[in-house]
């Protein structure tokens, strides 16, 4: 079976600074993979590289990104754009800024449906109503006529989730979709993502710094630090028997209901320092020597 997403030895640099240092990972059809790491680990950059949304000063210097076996980096622009939003979708991080402030919700969803599914204006509106129903938005017809600032952050995120799953994507990249939300709303959003991915049969690459979130919904996980994969495997295995010292440190720093708060230990600075200097040493190795 072809993997939905295959990343091999991906290197991304911003100017002379490396951000991803040879990352490999796979997402199988229907799989939910957590991509975990602290800020600056490069986890969001990885998501952006898949979507072709790297910042203007960043570039892929090595490696391969394949979607259902097709090389995304070698693909024609038009061909890739035809996949984006339809077969590969994004749930963005910040629902407050990710909807266009001057356009009605209905117009924004309608545009997507018309663009990728070629629906008429009328059909797009009916489908948009169904989509909002699917993400448990009450009075969907009314919400379609509203502007983003007229609905809550949680509702905006549900609209964005509905849009991500609108065209039955094979892969959804969820870029820290719960980070900007209240804790009470986070759980709803997770349940929603879980329900919709089952219904639409999508694989999900769930980018997060929250091990609790990973434990809840990800079957497998990849731990990223300084643009390197430190550990990966089934979530149950990794969380119960972490092999890498960094994963153990992350776990020790994660609050849990069955553990007093005093037992929390921050990730030791020595460890991160050591990992960063390892990463920088990797940068020094000439390309030929590395091969």
């Amino acid at each position: 079976m072809t993997a939905t997403l295959t990343i091999e030895g991906l290197k991304v640099a911003i100017g002379a600074a490396n951000v991803l240092r040879g990352v490999s990972l796979e997402v199988q059809p229907g799989e939910v993979r957590g991509l975990v790491g602290e800020s600056g680990a490069g986890k969001s950059m990885l998501g952006r590289a898949v979507l072709g949304l790297l910042p203007a000063n960043a570039s892929v210097t090595a490696g391969r990104i394949a979607f259902e076996g097709r090389d995304l980096l070698a693909m024609q622009e038009a061909e890739r754009r035809n996949l984006l939003g339809r077969r590969i979708a994004l749930i963005p991080q910040d629902p407050m800024t990710s909807l266009n402030p001057v356009k009605r919700i209905g117009g924004q969803i309608g545009n997507l449906l018309r663009h990728h599914l070629g629906l008429s204006k009328r059909a797009a509106l009916m489908r948009a109503t169904d989509l909002l129903n699917e993400v448990a938005i009450r009075e969907p017809k009314r919400v379609l006529s509203l502007y983003p600032h007229e609905i809550s952050g949680g509702m905006r995120q549900r609209v964005l989730i509905a849009m991500a799953f609108a065209c039955d994507p094979a892969l959804v990249i969820a870029d820290e979709p719960t980070t900007a939300l209240d804790v009470t709303v986070q759980r709803q959003v997770l349940q929603l993502v879980e329900r919709l991915r089952l219904r639409h049969g999508s694989a999900v690459l769930f980018v997060t710094h929250d091990l609790g979130v990973v434990a809840k919904i990800c079957r497998s996980m990849t731990v990223l630090h300084a643009g390197r994969v430190l550990e990966e495997g089934e979530t149950a295995n990794v969380l119960v028997r972490p092999r890498h010292a960094y994963t153990r440190a992350l776990l020790a720093a994660t609050p849990r209901a069955d553990r007093p708060a005093e037992a929390l230990r921050p990730v030791p600075p020595d460890l991160t320092d050591q990992l960063w200097s390892e990463a920088h040493r990797l940068d020094q190795v000439p390309a030929a020597g590395a091969a």
């Binding site: 979507l51 072709g52 949304l53 890739r80 754009r81 035809n82 996949l83 984006l84 939003g85 339809r86 979708a89 994004l90 963005p92 991080q93 910040d94 800024t97 990710s98 909807l99 266009n100 402030p101 001057v102 356009k103 545009n111 997507l112 663009h115 990728h116 964005l160 849009m163």
Partner: peptide, 24 residues
């Protein structure tokens, strides 16, 4: 963000500039 997200939906850059960015 909304313009970046529009790129992730596969809209072309001229279309994003005209329909998403220009009204703002």
């Amino acid at each position: 963000d909304y313009a970046q997200v529009a790129r992730a939906r596969g809209y072309s850059r001229p279309s994003i500039l005209l329909h998403e960015v220009f009204p703002n």
